[in-house]
Amino acid sequence: MWTIPNILTSLRVLLIPVFVIVYFLDWKWAHQAAAFIFWFAAITDWFDGYLARRLKQSTAFGAFLDPVADKLIVGAALIMIAHSYNSAWITVSAVLLMSREIFVSALREWMAESGRRDTVQVSFIGKAKTMAQMLALIGLLSELEYFMGFPIYWVTLGKILLVIATVLSVWSMCIYLKAAWKYLSAE
């Protein structure tokens, strides 16, 4: 059970309270440190999947915990940016992104119980949404517009990517729903 991929996934779960605490510290670089922790967690998400396939260390525990870890840390980050920015656009995006995750998770669970798990497989749009969402959250968590006096516009880019992630999120949800609709609407 304690394979390298499962250790990385478990580390991601353990990093969630650290990530939240660091973000709210009364410290000059707290938000940037929290953004780094979030970035590190996002990288471990990619590595645990890659290593599980490459080392042939896929386990039922890893298959269960990996998406849970992703949703927990992303949910925490969305709540934190909605709180910090106090913006209707960011809050609406955060609510839509979290709602979509709950909806698609429930849809996948129902389809799996119905023996139709392959109907709602992860699509390219879903992967693009995840990439845009992760980059958006890193930028928004960091609150950096300048680095060492140079403009980098992380927050501005983060806001744009958050809107893109939200659009892709709703779009992919509609695709999954369309694929499952004939089973959901059956008598």
Score class of each variant (00 low, 15 high):
W110R: 13
Y153H: 14
V163K: 07
F147E: 08
A128Q: 03
E145K: 04
G158P: 08
K159H: 12
S142N: 00
F103R: 02
E113V: 00
Y153K: 10
K129T: 02
I102A: 13
T130H: 03
R108P: 00
Q133S: 01
S99T: 13
W154G: 03
S105T: 12
E101R: 11
F103N: 05
S114H: 15
V155G: 09
I164D: 07
F124M: 13
G115V: 00
L141I: 10
W154I: 03
I102E: 01
E109C: 03
I160A: 08
M148H: 06
M98T: 13
F150E: 14
L140Y: 05
R117H: 12
A165N: 02
E145N: 14
F103V: 15
V163H: 08
S123N: 10
L96W: 14
Q133M: 02
F124H: 08
V122E: 03
A132M: 03
L157M: 11
G126I: 05
P151M: 11
K159A: 15
G139H: 00
W154C: 08
F124V: 15
V155E: 08
E143D: 09
S123C: 10
I138M: 04
Q121W: 03
E143G: 06
A106K: 07
K159N: 11
F150P: 05
S114K: 14
I152W: 04
F150I: 12
L157C: 08
T130D: 04
Y153T: 12
A128I: 05
S123P: 04
L107D: 02
M111E: 00
L137H: 05
M148R: 10
L135R: 00
R108S: 03
Q121N: 11
K127V: 09
T119Q: 11
L144G: 00
D118A: 15
Y146Q: 06
L97T: 11
G115N: 03
L140H: 06
M148V: 12
L161A: 06
L140Q: 06
V95M: 10
G126N: 10
L97I: 15
L137D: 06
E145R: 04
M98K: 04
S105E: 08
G139M: 04
E101A: 09
I164K: 12
A165Y: 03
I125R: 02
W154E: 01
A94K: 04
V122D: 02
I152F: 07
E145V: 05
L107M: 10
T119G: 02
E109Q: 05
S105L: 09
F103H: 05
K127T: 06
V163E: 15
G158C: 06
